[in-house]
């Protein structure tokens, strides 16, 4: 990707310190990163490397302890919950490792949950068709396999036509075949709609489907590479 275009995400010197009970955890130790419109970026790193923390900050789910971070003209380092909520609501779609579906709602209703609060959403049915679940609309999460649940979560993320799709280990809880299916859906959304997509994984082989790969370790960016040729998810193996 060319660096000539202005980045949509711009982060400088971000740090994040957590208190987990009695232990202080320095999750990010000064990260600078730019992300560009429409690119598919994989954040790679072992657990504890700080990739989820970075993703959460980019998604306005968490605020950095220090440093600046913005998406277009939105300041994401703010602690103003209303601004961050507005940002997530209008621009961001999330996919989590553990799906985070509401167990008491059907697939369609889980997707509607997000559609109902956005300005120009897709129809929930359409979003579910896009992820190949057009025939599972009225199933509850407990009636769906892990892969299907994750695809419902993706449908929930894309139904509001987000500018940014943030995925935290979307295949982490899935077997390889199902995982590839999920990645295909994400890849298609990225290509067809041009949604800027950030995907977290500790699985290096998934990195081959990215435009750019950023590796983190111990709270710092340790490596960055641009894939000259992207692989299709179907070609990945692990």
């Amino acid at each position: 990707m060319s660096d000539a275009r202005p980045p949509v995400f711009r982060a400088r010197g971000i740090e994040k310190v957590y208190r987990m009970g009695e232990v202080e955890v320095r999750a990010l130790r000064g990260v600078d990163v730019d992300l560009y419109e429409g690119e598919l970026v994989v954040l790679l790193g072992p657990s504890g490397s700080g990739k989820s923390t970075l993703l959460n900050i980019l998604g306005g789910l968490d605020a950095p302890s220090a440093g600046t971070v913005s998406w277009r003209d939105h300041d994401l380092a703010t602690r103003d919950d209303r601004l961050l909520t507005r940002y997530r609501r209008d621009h961001v779609g999330f996919v989590f490792q553990f799906y985070n579906l509401v167990p008491s709602l059907t697939a369609r209703e889980n997707v509607a949950l997000a559609a109902e609060i956005s300005e120009h959403p897709l129809r929930p049915e359409e979003a579910l068709e896009r992820v190949g679940l057009g025939d599972r609309l009225d199933h509850f999460p407990a009636q769906l396999s892990g892969g299907e649940q994750q695809r419902v979560a993706i449908a929930r993320a894309v139904v509001k036509r987000p500018d940014v799709l943030l995925c935290d280990e979307p295949t982490g809880a899935l077997d390889a075949a199902t995982g590839r299916l999920v990645l295909e859906v994400l890849d298609r959304v990225n290509r067809e709609v041009g949604t800027t997509t950030v995907l977290i994984t500790h699985n290096a082989s998934i990195a081959d489907m990215a435009d750019r790969v950023i590796a983190l370790s111990d709270g710092r960016i340790v490596r960055e590479r641009v894939n000259a040729t992207k692989k299709r998810p179907a070609e990945l193996s692990w």
Partner: peptide, 16 residues
């Protein structure tokens, strides 16, 4: 707590 976090992540405001 977890469902609550998800709702926030999706974009629901604290008030909602």
């Amino acid at each position: 707590r977890q469902q609550l976090g998800m709702l926030k992540a999706v974009g629901y405001s604290s008030a909602e």
